[in-house]
Every structure is written in structure tokens, then in C-alpha cells.
Computed example of a mutant assay.
Amino acid sequence: MGNSKSGVVSREVLDDLKVSTRFSEAEITQWYENFQKQCPSGRITPAQFEEIYGRFFPDSDAKTYAQHVFRSFDTNDDGTLDFKEYIVALHMTSSGKMALKLEWAFSLFDVDKNGYITKNEVFEICQAIFKMIPKEKQEMLPSDENTSEKRADKLWGFFGKGENERVAEGEFVKGVMENEDALRLIQCEPLK
């Protein structure tokens, strides 16, 4: 990453992030300083990420979901997140653009990173999402989505695919954008 130990984000990384995220230089520099304080090694490990994520979902089991989120952010597959991956992930998940968020959601559901989503992958992520819903909230869910299996079946149904078919990124983005229920089923917002 360049100057990860010096306390100053490299010009190359700064310029790249300004273009790819549209964040300002001041924002990136401030986030870099905070990142360095929290992660002096310049890297976030999966365990650190799980701990951070767990703080946002104190009444739930966020570990499995955090592992999937981490995998989707670790774009170079080195088992850690560097500052650049962290900022790009922050941009993708916080950007106001729904299509960008759904592209990230696709990468979350694409567990094997082959460019397609299968029903088994939808089920795996729905299981992780379901674990994050507090028990008392699970009891209030509609009967067709009150288990991870039912949620996965319902979500898969929105794509109009058979059991052994697969969904490409464009189909996923379009299918979720066109259906409010599908959008709700893929989201896992922290409790306020």
C-alpha cells in the first residue's frame, strides 16, 4: 500500500481513492489517520473485522455474516483488508447509489466468486442474515420468511430461476431493484 507505516496516505492511493470513490482528499486523509490508530499494522484481520461488526449487532450472532462481508471486501484475497479495500468498501456500502450497493450485495452472495449466484449461495447468506435478527423480531416475521430456508426460497423466487440455475450480476441488480420485498430480504441493518 505504500506509506502504511508512515502515518501519511500515499499520493498514489489518495489520488486513486479520490477518483474511484468521489470522497474528498480531506475525508480520505481523516479516515486514514483513524484507520492507522485502530489498525497500526495497516491491515484489518478477519477476527478484528468480526469484533468491529459484532459491536453494530450486539443482540445478534453477527460472526457468520461478518465473515461473508469481509470476504466480499477482500478484493485481492490476501486474508486482510488494507486501507484502500476498506475505503472502497465504505464507499460501496454507504453511497447513495442503489445500483452500487446492489453490486456489492451481489459480491456478498457470490460466495465462490465465480460471477454467478446459486440457490445454495442465497441460502448460505440468508442463514447468516437470519442469525442477525434478534429472536423476538424473528417471531414477528411473516410466515413465508420466518426461517432462513423460507427467506432463501422467497428471495430465489423473485429471480424466476429453477433449483439448479444461476443468477448473473445484472439479473440480480435488476431483480432486486424491481422488487421491494427482495430488497428488504437482502438487507441487514443494525438496530438503532
Results as ranks from 00 to 15, higher is better:
7 G>H: 12
8 V>R: 09
8 V>L: 12
8 V>M: 10
9 V>W: 05
9 V>K: 01
9 V>G: 05
9 V>H: 04
10 S>G: 15
10 S>W: 08
11 R>T: 13
12 E>I: 06
15 D>K: 12
17 L>W: 10
18 K>Q: 15
18 K>H: 03
19 V>N: 11
21 T>Y: 07
22 R>I: 00
23 F>K: 12
24 S>P: 02
25 E>L: 04
25 E>I: 03
25 E>H: 08
26 A>F: 06
26 A>C: 02
27 E>N: 09
27 E>Q: 15
28 I>N: 10
28 I>W: 07
29 T>Q: 15
29 T>E: 15
29 T>D: 13
30 Q>V: 11
31 W>K: 02
31 W>C: 08
33 E>H: 13
34 N>Q: 14
34 N>W: 03
34 N>A: 14
35 F>N: 07
37 K>M: 12
38 Q>E: 15
39 C>S: 15
39 C>Q: 13
41 S>K: 10
42 G>W: 04
43 R>T: 06
43 R>W: 14
45 T>F: 08
45 T>W: 02
45 T>G: 08
45 T>K: 10
45 T>Y: 02
48 Q>F: 09
48 Q>C: 09
48 Q>M: 13
49 F>V: 08
49 F>G: 02
49 F>I: 09
51 E>K: 14
52 I>E: 00
53 Y>R: 02
53 Y>S: 01
54 G>W: 03
55 R>M: 15
55 R>S: 13
56 F>A: 12
56 F>C: 05
57 F>R: 14
57 F>S: 13
57 F>K: 13
57 F>M: 11
57 F>W: 10
57 F>L: 12
58 P>K: 14
60 S>Y: 00
61 D>T: 00
61 D>W: 00
62 A>M: 05
62 A>Y: 04
62 A>R: 08
63 K>C: 02
64 T>M: 10
65 Y>R: 05
66 A>N: 07
68 H>I: 05
70 F>E: 01
71 R>G: 01
75 T>P: 00
77 D>C: 12
81 L>A: 06
82 D>W: 05
83 F>V: 07
84 K>A: 07
84 K>I: 00
85 E>K: 07
87 I>P: 05
87 I>Y: 10
88 V>E: 12
88 V>H: 11
88 V>L: 15
91 H>Q: 08
91 H>V: 00
92 M>Y: 04
93 T>E: 06
95 S>K: 03
95 S>F: 05
96 G>K: 09
96 G>Q: 10
97 K>E: 12
97 K>G: 00
97 K>F: 06
98 M>I: 12
100 L>E: 15
103 E>A: 11
104 W>R: 03
106 F>K: 04
106 F>H: 03
107 S>I: 00
108 L>G: 04
108 L>R: 08
109 F>K: 09
110 D>R: 03
110 D>M: 07
110 D>I: 09
111 V>R: 07
111 V>C: 03
112 D>Y: 05
113 K>Y: 02
114 N>Y: 01
115 G>V: 03
115 G>M: 02
117 I>V: 14
118 T>Y: 05
118 T>C: 06
118 T>P: 05
119 K>F: 10
120 N>W: 02
121 E>V: 11
122 V>L: 08
122 V>N: 03
124 E>T: 15
126 C>G: 04
126 C>K: 03
126 C>E: 09
127 Q>G: 02
129 I>Q: 06
132 M>S: 07
132 M>Y: 01
132 M>F: 02
134 P>I: 01
134 P>Y: 03
135 K>R: 10
135 K>A: 09
136 E>V: 11
137 K>H: 05
